[in-house]
Nucleic acid binder design. Structure first.
Lengths: 112, 112
DNA sequence: ATAGTATATGAGTAAATACGTATATACTTG
DNA sequence: CAAGTATATACGTATTTACTCATATACTAT
């Protein structure tokens, strides 16, 4: 697989879909909550402040996108991050945004 | 509580917005076309197969998100990737998806 | 069985946005 | 000045999707 091959239409759709899954604050909140290990739905509801229905729906979206994995234990379902690139993606974006916002902030204080 | 600093609501919105910008195939196509250097709008229209109006609109979105930079030269406007993390983001996602899809493909008898 | 708890999902609504068509702006040249 | 070219934008429409409320499913215990 060459590193810079251009993606075809179907591949672009898949990549776009991947980014779209990460493009909702509530889903990012869920992912963040799972950085330090698995949690069940009730814990995720508490951690994110969302409704149970909405949290559950977003969890299904993340499962379908293979971002998370689930494990049933009696009545409870535990979710965890399954794709190890997810934390790295978030780090990359956060780092880049920090830099950009800092640079922008500079335009307001001292015109450089 | 996580050992990592959790992002607040506003930061999550910004990160989500960043991912949303990358969540459209046409914008990914534009970004791909710029991997090997700057191009003007006409060249990007040809490279992506989109209408001029649509390409221009997506370019404005990418500019507003500080993904691209622009440079005017007479009548023409040249665009280039301004955020060096963009290619790395795409690589990360592509690599991860390759792995996931290969693993999924193994669950079926017929190929694509 | 019944009640109780944890999680998932259906219906309806509101908001966001991608796209095409047509038009506007910005710049160059005659 | 006018005409021509490159790029940007306004408007209308169709599609997607995030959310709430209500209910359904899955499991446990009595």
């Amino acid at each position: 697989m060459s590193r810079h091959a251009l993606l075809n239409d179907q591949a672009l759709e898949i990549v776009a879909r991947r980014f779209a899954v990460l493009a909702e604050p509530m889903r990012l909140r869920l992912i963040q909550s799972l950085f330090d290990g698995e949690k069940n739905v009730t814990e995720l509801v508490e951690a994110t402040g969302g409704t149970q229905a909405n949290v559950s729906r977003h969890l299904q979206t993340l499962i379908a996108a293979h971002v998370l994995d689930r494990r049933k234990e009696g009545l409870q379902v535990f979710y965890r991050i399954s794709d190890p690139t997810i934390p790295r993606l978030c780090e990359l974006v956060c780092g880049s945004l920090e830099k950009t916002l800092t640079r922008q902030a500079g335009h307001f204080s001292a015109g450089r």
